Simulated scan of single mutants.
Amino acid sequence: MTTTSSSAPTRTRARRDPAPDLARGAMLLAIALANVMIYLYDHPYGLRHHVVTDGALDPLVTGLLTATVDARAYPMFAALYGYGLARIVATRRERGWSEAGVRGYLRRRGLGLVLLGALHAALAFSGDILGWYGLLGVLLAGASARWSDRRLLVVAAATLPVAVVVQGIVYADPRVRTERELFWSMAIEEPLEALLWRGVEWLMTPFGLLAVVPALLVGVVAGRRDLLGDVASRRRPLLAAAVVGVAVGWLGGLPMALATGGAVALPAGSEAWFSGLHVLSGVACGLGYAALAGWLCTHGRLVRSWAGRALRATGARSLTCYLAQSVVLAPLLSAWALGLGARLGTAAAAGVAALTWVATVVLAVALERAGRSGPAERLLRWFARPQAATIGP
């Protein structure tokens, strides 16, 4: 007995838990704030490749974003991505899909993200994360469906030190330098040359984002247990996880925040250690942010408020809204377009990012009112659609 694309879940609107969508919607602001700094060029660069300026407000903004967003937003999104993979497995099994059908769907979906990420990088932003998430989805399709929770957590614990060491070293150079050492395409005025460099940079991106791997695996375990589903029964555990995760993240990011903001100078030779601590605490912070979203969703008034509905609409279309950010930021800031990245400081760039995020929220709300999903989500569902998923073991 088989099911065809006519009965595929792409045709039905499944119940959506509010917590993951609210988390994605809010954290897209953090993604915008993190990504916009990559576009700044013709500035001196310091620790973690942050722009160094002499103004009063710019260092404050740099330090604040380092503590709360830098190396914190992407682990949180990775955890939610893993959570989503686990929920996909659970719902497809409930509908009678075979194990091979479930794994095939996950692989096609991951491949679709890789292709979208490649297009995103080629046209606009080489710091794209979709390709890396998609590749992990392809590689971990079997693990998401078959590995035990214990095995997933053991692998997460084993990969975390590797990520801490690699990312810690990559971003530990304390020298103030005038030449970019990452994302060179942002400063290249020739469009074709910038496009070619974006391809190279996109292939390098995973080395700077290895910490998303353990976060994703933890998210799979959380998704299997549906921890963000029935949040009302988990109010206290979610609050405890949020407080601990966010506190560890902000305190662990404080040394780097003070250093990038110019308030202190780290002891010579300690930069790699503090950079590694920044990455390690960032994973805890990302998980804490996700738990915080779950706890907030235990407050019905917030979920039903206009702000809650707007964030949920944005989170439900997070792929479209993430890509829409680049539609605004790349032409506005890159050297091959208007080139405002050479003239803006970190405070002004953060303002541009916030306004861009607001614009994507407005877009998402308009799509919600029209009863339409995001175009990128529809494209991904089309690409991953099942041709024939066999029911049975």
Rank of each mutant, 00 (worst) to 15 (best):
2 T>R: 12
7 S>C: 15
8 A>N: 11
10 T>F: 13
19 A>M: 13
24 R>P: 03
25 G>C: 13
26 A>V: 09
27 M>G: 06
30 A>W: 10
31 I>S: 06
33 L>K: 11
34 A>T: 12
36 V>L: 11
36 V>R: 11
40 L>Y: 05
44 P>H: 09
45 Y>W: 05
47 L>N: 01
48 R>T: 06
50 H>Y: 14
50 H>A: 12
52 V>I: 15
54 D>C: 08
56 A>V: 15
58 D>G: 02
62 T>E: 10
62 T>Y: 00
64 L>Y: 00
66 T>C: 02
66 T>V: 06
68 T>P: 03
69 V>M: 02
70 D>M: 03
71 A>F: 05
72 R>A: 04
73 A>G: 11
83 Y>N: 02
84 G>N: 02
86 A>K: 09
87 R>Y: 01
103 R>Q: 03
108 R>G: 12
111 L>V: 14
112 G>K: 13
118 A>P: 03
118 A>G: 09
121 A>H: 00
121 A>S: 14
122 A>I: 08
126 S>F: 00
128 D>Y: 04
131 G>R: 00
132 W>N: 09
135 L>A: 09
135 L>D: 02
139 L>I: 06
154 V>T: 12
154 V>S: 06
163 A>M: 15
167 Q>P: 01
167 Q>C: 10
175 R>S: 08
176 V>P: 01
178 T>Q: 08
181 E>Y: 05
186 M>G: 10
189 E>N: 12
190 E>G: 13
190 E>S: 15
191 P>Y: 05
193 E>M: 07
195 L>S: 03
204 M>D: 09
204 M>H: 12
206 P>W: 07
208 G>L: 02
209 L>M: 11
210 L>H: 01
214 P>Y: 08
215 A>M: 04
218 V>G: 05
219 G>T: 07
223 G>R: 06
224 R>Q: 06
225 R>Q: 12
225 R>I: 11
226 D>K: 00
226 D>Y: 02
227 L>Y: 00
228 L>G: 01
232 A>E: 04
236 R>S: 03
238 L>I: 03
243 V>E: 06
247 A>S: 14
254 L>M: 11
256 M>A: 06
257 A>P: 01
261 G>S: 10
262 G>L: 10
262 G>Q: 09
266 L>T: 10
266 L>K: 11
268 A>V: 08
269 G>E: 02
271 E>H: 15
272 A>P: 03
284 A>C: 13
289 Y>P: 03
291 A>W: 00
295 W>G: 04
295 W>K: 03
304 R>Y: 08
308 G>L: 05
308 G>P: 00
311 L>C: 05
311 L>G: 01
315 G>V: 09
319 L>R: 08
320 T>I: 10
321 C>T: 14
325 Q>M: 10
329 L>N: 08
335 A>Y: 08
338 L>R: 14
348 A>P: 00
350 A>M: 03
357 W>T: 12
358 V>Y: 11
360 T>C: 13
368 E>K: 05
372 R>I: 05
375 P>A: 06
379 L>M: 15
383 F>P: 05
385 R>M: 13
386 P>W: 07
388 A>L: 08
388 A>T: 09
390 T>G: 09
392 G>V: 12
